[in-house]
């Protein structure tokens, strides 16, 4: 069971990474990042069971809390971008370069 969980978590993580690298909509990229974090959570739970220690499960609680804080800040930033550019597509957001 543990090996399957680890494999599944690796697949989820990869989907998240590919999503971040290929999609251009800020909200979708953010959702892919959340997918990565949850893939890691799954790994932690499986590994916690493997070692029979609670450390991994404690870690998951911390990750979920932090992810919530990150979502609050991230969505606020995306709203502020939308107010300026009327779009959350990264292709339209390119004032900074050089």
């Amino acid at each position: 069971m543990i090996a399957e969980a680890l494999f599944f978590s690796a697949v989820l993580f990869t989907i998240g990474v590919v999503g971040v690298l290929t999609r251009r909509n800020a909200i979708i990229i953010f959702m892919c990042v959340e997918l990565m974090l949850n893939a890691v959570n799954l790994s932690f739970i499986a590994l916690s069971r493997l070692h029979g220690s609670a450390n991994g499960q404690v870690f998951v609680l911390f990750v979920m809390t932090i992810a919530a804080a990150e979502a609050a800040v991230g969505l606020a930033i995306i709203i502020s971008i939308f107010r300026h550019h009327k779009s959350v597509d990264l292709r339209n957001i390119n004032l900074l370069k050089g």
Binding site: L6, F13, G16, V17, V20, A26, I29, F30, V33, M36, L37, A39, V40, S43, F44, L47, L50, H51, N55, G56, F59, V63, E70, V73, G74, I77, I78, S80, I81, R83, H84, H85, I93, N94, L95, L96
Partner: peptide, 30 residues
Amino acid sequence: SRGAEAALKYFLLGAFSTGFLLYGIALVYG
């Protein structure tokens, strides 16, 4: 709007890199 763009880029890449850091921690823990 430059500040907002900076924040968005920092946030997306920062959160992305946190994912890697966390996965690294999980594997080392494993």
